[in-house]
Simulated assay, not measured.
Amino acid sequence: MRTVSAAETAPTTYPWAVDAEGLTVRAGRHLAVDGLDLTLGTGVHGLLGPNGAGKTTLMRALATVVKPAGGRLTLLGEPVGGRADLRRVRRGIGYLPKQFGFYPRFTVREFVEYLAWLKEMPKAEVPGATQRAIDRVGLTAKADARMKTLSGGMLRRAGIAQAIVNDPAVLLLDEPTVGLDPEQRLDFRELLRDVGVDSCVVVSTHLVEDVVAACSDVVLINEGRLVHQGTPNDLAAQGGDGDAGDSPAERGYSALLRKHRAGEGR
């Protein structure tokens, strides 16, 4: 019997979980992501930007739903694009799109188990992983309720459960707090901080306060281009009393967009 070396059993490490250089992605005929340079590692990254900034298209590219039109994109050490085999990469990704489909007669448990199966998780691990994911999003009491009976907020939490069931190395959440009440949003922030200890979490949102409360890194894009990347404190420091917003972070957000639209810092 051959002895397995420590190198063979050690977890795979990557300089960056997400590494994009000159990335371009189309949404139909529109160039929604335009020459984006971005690197993301372990932690919680808040993706901000106005409507039409390219956030959802970028998230779809990171989830390997759409292929880049140009530039370079590497996820978990694997190049994405061309004829690359994406199965291994996809096993390490959790993704919650803005809108997701489901079989209405599935229970929450069946829905999460089904997504675990699609992610090619080992069969023996699925029941336990499913229950943990359901518990983490606060749906324990609704585990055997049919999806069609859930409220909007509960559906969103079921969507988050399927995204985390495989303990992904890259977790992508597009507008995850839609439909959540204030208490659920607080619980969600805690979940993000917990998952972000070992994973790269990217949260696309319009809510600057959620980013400040839960994220260690802020990425601001506009017109498919990177406007700013830094800590929430860095974002807050960009604004002044004359900028729009009810908090320092919101004023920083407004100031950066104003300067970018005016051509400053390009």
Rank of each mutant, 00 (worst) to 15 (best):
A84V: 14
V108Y: 02
E125R: 14
L75C: 04
I160D: 01
T64P: 01
V44R: 04
G81N: 09
T130Y: 05
K55W: 11
E113A: 15
K55C: 04
Y114C: 01
A158H: 14
I134S: 04
G71C: 08
R157P: 00
T64W: 06
I134D: 03
G71S: 12
K67F: 07
R83L: 07
K123M: 01
S151M: 15
V126K: 00
G77C: 07
R157Q: 11
A69I: 12
V89Y: 13
G46T: 10
P104H: 10
A63L: 06
W117I: 10
Y95V: 02
G41I: 14
T74I: 14
L48M: 07
I93M: 08
Q131P: 00
P122W: 07
G70K: 07
R146N: 08
L139F: 04
R83W: 05
L155S: 07
T64C: 13
G81P: 07
D85M: 08
A163N: 08
R90L: 12
Y114A: 09
L86T: 13
E110R: 15
P68C: 06
L48V: 14
A141W: 09
L150K: 12
L96D: 00
G152R: 15
E110C: 03
V165Y: 09
E120C: 02
R157I: 10
P122V: 03
A53H: 04
A141T: 12
R109H: 09
P97D: 03
V66W: 11
K142I: 00
P97C: 06
A69W: 15
D135C: 02
R146M: 13
S151I: 11
L86C: 09
S151W: 15
G159T: 09
R90A: 07
R146H: 10
T107L: 04
R88A: 13
R105A: 13
A145Q: 15
R60P: 01
D144H: 14
V66P: 01
E120D: 12
I134Q: 00
P104G: 03
L47K: 09
L75D: 02
G82I: 09
G92D: 06
A63G: 11
I160M: 09
K148R: 15
L48P: 02
Y95H: 13
P79W: 11
M59L: 15
A61G: 06
A145N: 13
L155Y: 07
N51R: 12
G153H: 14
L150I: 14
G153N: 03
G52H: 13
P50V: 11
T56P: 03
R157M: 10
D144P: 01
I164T: 08
G138V: 05
V89Q: 01
K119H: 05
R87P: 00
F102L: 11
V80D: 01
H45W: 13
I164A: 06
D135V: 04
K142G: 00
T74K: 15
V137W: 02
A163I: 08
L139C: 06
T107Y: 07
F111I: 02
V80W: 02
